[in-house]
């Protein structure tokens, strides 16, 4: 209750109205108290991040600079500042890194093309049909109830040489007689798209759900055809969802290794996640794996920052 006057004061200031009179001491005290409560509430999250994010990153960074001890056994390294680790892995895996981002980008675009119409259907077209809307939303999330690996394994069956998809594509001569889909880049992108589709669809759904359909009527009333209405009203107003969805799809897809491992081959579909995995657990090259992890992290950060600068915050929120 004591916070109430302070709250109102802040609200007014936010609206650009000058608060009446100067700051009164009661309000200042309330502000201070709220400040302390805020700090207290942030503490658990902060501690968690410190322990399980910041500390590992520091360890990772340190490890990426380790060097092999002379005459040591496999997996034995000693602390050092071996910056050449980065140059070595970058030279060796540059192609894989580029391919990972290309796959992630393709999957993000595919998920956007599939997810946006789905979200639009459920959020706008079916707005009057609450029950149907609910059922479709559950179906949208339903894949999450089964295992990620299992679902990806299922795609192997769907795209198998004897499977229906390949059969139909061969019959239509889209694929040559001996053409296949498993163990191709296409299969990997399919798997990525499928697995990250909900991350794309749900944020778009959330922003379309808030779309005021009266604005669409107003647009039609002002001589805009349905296509133009979509381009000028619906799409811009759902951009926050598109923005969040593309980030939520692109970032995990770039580092994914399950789809490439299960649906790809060992030659031209390898993704950076697979390389890091095998560096750590098979080759036991901890510094190399750590350096790659760090490169991946920084690369994603740079790409995302560029994306945000181009399309982000300023215009959208």
């Amino acid at each position: 209750m004591t916070a109430a006057p302070g709250l109102r004061g802040r609200h007014d200031a936010g609206r650009g109205r000058a608060p009446e009179g100067g700051p009164n001491p009661e309000e200042a005290a309330a502000d201070k108290k709220r400040g302390r409560i805020g700090q207290l509430l942030v503490l658990p999250g902060f501690t968690f991040l410190l322990l399980f994010f910041a500390a590992p990153v520091v360890v990772l960074l340190a490890m990426s600079l380790y060097t092999k001890a002379p005459g040591a056994e496999i997996g034995q390294f000693e602390p050092a500042l071996q910056f050449s680790n980065y140059a070595v892995v970058l030279r060796e895996y540059w192609d894989v890194l580029v391919r990972s981002f290309a796959f992630a980008l393709a999957a993000t675009l595919a998920a956007l093309l599939i997810g946006y119409p789905m979200a639009y259907l459920v959020a706008v077209r079916l707005r009057a049909h609450r029950l149907l809307q609910g059922i479709l939303l559950v179906l949208l999330i339903a894949p999450f109830f089964s295992s990620f690996i299992l679902r990806t394994q299922a795609w192997k069956q769907i795209l198998a040489d004897e499977g229906p998809v390949v059969g139909v594509l061969r019959a239509l001569a889209v694929l040559p007689e001996d053409g296949r889909l498993t163990a191709t880049a296409f299969a990997v992108v399919c798997g990525l798209t499928y697995n990250f589709l909900p991350f794309m669809t749900l944020p778009i759904y959330a922003s379309l759900e808030r779309l005021d359909t009266r604005l669409l009527e107003a647009s039609g009333d002002l001589y805009a055809s349905p296509m133009r209405t979509f381009r000028q009203v619906t799409l811009p107003l759902s951009m926050p969802g598109v923005f969040a969805g593309t980030l939520l799809t692109f970032i995990p897809a770039s580092g994914d290794y399950v789809n490439a491992a299960l649906l790809g081959n060992n030659r031209d579909t390898t993704m950076i996640g697979q390389v890091i995995d095998s560096r750590f657990f098979r080759v036991v090259d901890y510094p190399g794996a750590a350096a790659l992890s760090f490169i991946l992290m920084v690369a994603i950060l740079v790409l995302v920052m560029a994306y945000i600068r181009r399309f982000g915050a300023r215009n959208l929120f």
Partner: peptide, 20 residues
């Protein structure tokens, strides 16, 4: 005729101004 082909404009009760 669909709305966008009619020589008619509306002042809506909710105003329906485009917020963006």
């Amino acid at each position: 005729l669909p709305p966008y082909r009619r020589q008619v404009n509306t002042v809506f009760q909710s105003y329906a101004l485009f917020p963006h």
